[in-house]
Design a protein around this nucleic acid. Structure first.
Ligand SMILES: [Zn+2]
Length: 720
DNA sequence: AGCACGCCGACT
DNA sequence: GTCGGCGTGCTC
């Protein structure tokens, strides 16, 4: 008897076995409908084996679906990713089927002439139809319109057998990219990097690289050149380029279209389901060569993936925190290994993990030294707020105000960077000191003045800003404390009433379309002063931007997060890098109360190596990543006692292990979210410890009731 | 994730 | 005496 192990999109730890009927041929990767309890469910075949029988009566595979088979190595990857992240393999498989939600497009119905057959009665209308159609095939309604007759005439000809209806499978065509369409001219560094990548691709086998170069050094041209050479040697090769955010895809797609004469496929959650199915099927059939996407594109069913690029690899947006918890960069490297492909991690400020791998020689290290073309790095200075404090209830100090004024007078643009949405991060009562908090979550409500609401940024809860203090009832006693981008813009408008100002945050540009519009206005010079969160720090080029003011450079450094320094260095490097071109040198001013902070000193000196060395030394001393590994277990539930009980049981069943410690349980940094109590346990292990194996053994010892949810985060980034 | 089974309050 | 509340557990 033949038995198939089938991956089912449920939170169960393993595949379920089904009997394979004699007449059915099945292989790994096939999509099947299998009975589960009373219903049928879609699954992916992980394995088919011959057995003599089994200890339980198996249900049989109901049907082999006619959706395409998942390639062998895509299934390998899915299974590996599930083991690595300790998630259910069936749920990981479901991530690979995300593109098939929309139904197959209905085949297009067209009419065409049957031989030279003519109608018995050739009326004027019928002649017009035959004339308009000629030897081609056309959709019936189009033909009627072209001939200027009603659709009844066409139908009559079909009924009489003069025309026939043919169904044409709607297959989306992705024009093949032309590697020689419009090659860029490369400087020697870029050429050397492209050579190294292209050689690795041609040589075959897994080959990871760090492509390391400052903003404007031309990383994109370098990896696109490598992609072009890949496609030149193997026109069937597939190339995947991952970006951290959907907002960045459009610009890259346009660049690729210009470079290759054909637009790449686009893949992310914003793409409509029918389009997604087309891309999925084209990738699976090898009819699509270049895909640009967000992290979920990692799960596409590539059949000949040769080159995988993770652009802005340091970006925290690659970490998926909701549902399946995984890091897109780490999984990209794993996929590259499984596909025996070349992987390029590109960044101006690589993550310490990636730098460590490059230092160790595990990754090839390609450095682009020069800024390419017209771009020039800005002059960065620290503005000591202890020497020049802003006036009360304002956030821009006098020297920064003067710099903005000068920039404005020259007709150039300013970007004021503050990574805080809204008007004020805290609202409190002057009478009683009460802080406005979310009702079911441990967080302050943020005031948004454009909408007049108080908003919880964690859950999206919002309320109208109340007239009376909800605690003491005092009237008009609520005051806004601290600045957000809206408040800085208000200050700018008062200072420079004639200047054109705008705010760029996920609130003012919630989708790709509005973001592109704002970016274009800025690029064309339609804005003098842009106040922005990190939404504007990434990737965009503004030729007239010559001043970047960082309103609060200390912001990210507060709080004892493991990656606070690293993240701040990366974000501020990125933000300040927006300023300056060859003909218009830029400068960046960082307002700080702690100018002696090593991160800020390294930024001002433009000395990334000094920062990396200091931060690496700290991580090494504490055996923290990249010198060790972490995993977080978050327990949550509405019943606080039940959560505590599970946390204690976990703490009481820790398996013995060497070079590994468990910390906690303790309240998670956000102890209450959406009414759910949260507890956290943290595991630290040396790099060579089998961390996942330890976690599996540990979790197998404890029964977790349905009322308590356990989230395992291997290699956590955010410590919330 | 569904969908069943199961043990305690207000109804014909 | 039953109808039904959703807590707990299983699905090859
Ligand atoms: Zn009050």
């Amino acid at each position: 008897m033949k038995v198939a192990s089938v991956l089912i999109p449920l939170p169960v730890p393993e595949a379920f076995d089904y009997e394979v009927p004699e007449a059915v041929a099945l292989a790994r990767g096939d999509q099947v409908a299998v009975p589960l309890g009373p219903r049928l469910i879609r699954g992916v075949v992980a394995e088919v084996r011959e057995t003599t029988g089994s200890n339980r009566r198996l249900k049989a595979v109901e049907q082999v679906l006619d959706d395409p088979r998942l390639p062998e190595r895509t299934v390998d990857f899915v299974e590996w990713a599930a083991r690595w992240t300790l998630s259910a393999p069936g749920e990981m498989a479901a991530a690979a089927l995300k593109g098939l939600r929309a139904p197959r497009p209905r085949p297009e119905r067209r009419v065409r002439r049957v031989g030279e057959r003519s109608p018995a009665k050739l009326t004027a209308a019928r002649a017009a139809v035959l004339e308009a159609l000629g030897p081609r095939s056309m959709p019936g309604p189009d033909l009627a319109r072209a001939a200027g007759v009603s659709s009844g005439v066409v139908k009559g000809l079909v009924d009489e057998g003069v025309l026939e209806v043919v169904e044409i499978e709607a297959v989306a065509a992705f024009d093949p990219p032309d590697p020689d369409h419009a090659p860029a001219s490369l400087n020697p560094d870029q050429a050397a990097a492209a050579d190294a990548i292209a050689e690795a691709v041609t040589g075959g086998g897994f080959a990871p690289f760090l492509l390391d170069g400052v903003t404007g050094s031309g990383k994109t041209e370098a990896y696109l050149e490598a992609a072009a050479r890949t496609l030149k040697t193997d026109p069937a090769a597939q190339v995947l380029i991952l970006l951290p955010e959907i907002a960045l895809t459009q610009a890259l797609i346009e660049r690729i279209a210009a470079r290759f004469g054909a637009a790449p496929a686009e893949w992310h959650s914003g793409v409509a389901p029918p389009k997604r199915r087309q891309v999925w099927e084209a990738v699976q059939a090898g009819r699509c060569n270049i895909v640009v996407g967000a992290r979920s594109a990692l799960f596409l069913p590539f059949v000949n993936l040769r080159l995988l690029v993770v652009d802005e690899e340091h970006d925290g947006s690659f970490k998926q925190e909701e549902g399946l918890v995984y890091h897109g960069r780490d999984l990209a490297v794993a996929r590259g290994r499984i596909e025996a492909a070349t992987v390029v991690l590109a960044s101006a400020t690589p993550s310490l993990e990636t730098l460590w791998n490059a230092h160790q020689g595990r990754y090839g290290w390609l450095k682009l030294a020069a800024r390419h073309g017209a771009a020039v790095l800005p002059q960065i200075s620290l503005l000591d707020l202890r020497q020049a404090p802003p006036d009360p209830q304002t956030w821009l100090s006098q020297p920064l105000r003067e710099a903005i004024g000068e920039t404005l007078a020259r007709g150039e643009q300013t970007l004021l960077f503050l990574n805080r949405r809204g008007y004020a991060p805290v609202v409190l009562c002057r009478a009683c000191g009460h802080r406005m908090t979310a009702p079911d979550t441990d967080s302050w409500l943020v005031e948004h003045r454009y909408t007049g609401r108080l908003v919880c940024h964690l859950t999206g809860f919002s309320m109208v800003r109340p007239k009376l203090c909800p605690s003491c009832g005092a009237e008009d006693s609520l005051v806004s404390v601290g600045p957000g981008v809206e408040r800085v813009e208000e200050e700018v408008r008062q200072l420079f009433p004639e200047a054109r100002t705008a705010v760029f945050s996920s609130d003012t540009a919630p989708d790709g379309k509005s973001a592109r519009a704002l970016i274009q206005t800025m690029a064309e010079g339609g804005i003098d002063i842009l106040v922005a969160t990190q939404a504007a720090a990434k990737g965009h080029n503004f030729p007239h931007l010559t001043l970047v003011g960082v309103v609060d450079a200390d912001l990210g450094l507060r709080g004892g997060d493991l990656r606070a320094a690293e993240r701040t260095f990366q974000l501020l490097t990125q933000a300040t890098g927006r300023a300056g071109r060859a003909d218009k040198p830029g400068r960046a001013v960082l307002q700080t109360w702690t100018p002696e902070h090593p991160v800020l000193m390294a930024l001002a000196a433009g000395d990334r190596d000094a920062f990396v060395e200091a931060e690496m030394a700290e991580r090494e001393a504490a055996s923290l990543p990249p010198y060790g590994r972490l995993a977080a277990l978050i327990l949550s539930g509405e019943n606080a006692a039940a959560v505590d009980k599970v946390a204690r049981e976990l703490a009481g069943s820790i398996p013995n292990a060497e070079r590994l410690e468990v910390y906690g349980p303790a309240d998670a940094p956000l102890a209450l979210v959406r009414g759910r109590r949260r507890k956290r346990l943290l595991v630290r292990a040396d790099r060579d410890v089998d961390l996942q194996g330890f976690l599996r053994a540990w979790l197998a010892r404890v029964k977790i009731p349905a009322s308590v949810r356990l989230n395992v985060d291997v290699d956590p980034y955010s410590f919330l």
